[in-house]
């Protein structure tokens, strides 16, 4: 494994690589634009948005935020240990990172189950159209992130040629899921 460091001060080498950061900004602007659109629509139907928001479980949202932030913390610890060539510890923290992601998905599934049971589907009203589209799109990112982390984990276990840039790129993608959720949670669950 190549754990040599990269000079991140160079504009062309942000942690995770320039291509991934272009993707991260594209994703952030896409979600940002969708949230702005949601808030704009809420101006036309303020009562519907307020009543719909009350149908969401804020506690689930807050716990999921804690799951993702904790998972992000373990990811950062994993990268830190990888840089110090402590592969055993990096693997351990990577495993904890994935557990955090799985817990997020499990709680999200429970939340979706209750919504579907209550008939609050994507076509219920404008608020729930945004709720389903934005949160499901985010869930897809979390699933893709977990698959990427799983590949890294298998790479660690097989002691294959995993370099720091690849691992940092995987970590940056995972943290991007945190960043997106940090925008979605307050706007969807708390604002209206």
């Amino acid at each position: 494994m190549d754990t040599s460091t990269i000079n991140s001060k160079n504009i062309a080498y942000p942690p995770g690589g320039i291509l991934l950061w272009i993707i991260i900004f594209l994703e952030l602007f896409t979600f940002g634009a969708a949230l702005v659109a949601m808030v704009l629509y809420s101006k036309d139907e303020p009562e519907i948005f307020h009543q719909s928001k009350l149908l969401l479980n804020t506690t689930f949202g807050a716990i999921n935020t804690i799951f993702l932030l904790t998972s992000g913390f373990f990811m950062a610890k994993s990268v830190e240990n990888f840089k110090e060539n402590k592969i055993e510890k990096a693997t351990f923290f990577l495993k904890l990172t994935m557990v955090g992601g799985v817990l997020f998905l499990l709680l999200k599934s429970v939340e979706y189950y209750f919504k579907l049971q209550a008939g609050l589907t994507i076509g219920y009203n404008t608020f729930f159209s945004f709720y389903w589209m934005l949160t499901l799109f985010h869930v897809i990112h979390v699933v893709v992130g977990l698959v990427i982390l799983l590949f890294n984990y298998v790479g660690f276990k097989r002691k294959s040629t995993l370099n720091l840039e690849d691992f940092e790129a995987s970590a940056a993608f995972w943290h991007m899921c945190d960043l997106i959720w940090l925008l979605l949670f307050p706007v969807i669950y708390l604002l209206f």
């Binding site: 991140s8 001060k9 160079n10 504009i11 995770g16 950062a76 970590a171 943290h175 945190d178």
Partner: peptide, 16 residues
């Protein structure tokens, strides 16, 4: 929270 995650977990503090 966004800035904290970007700067410390994603190490953007060290970036250009």
């Amino acid at each position: 929270k966004f800035i904290l995650v970007a700067n410390y977990f994603m190490e953007m503090k060290k970036a250009h």
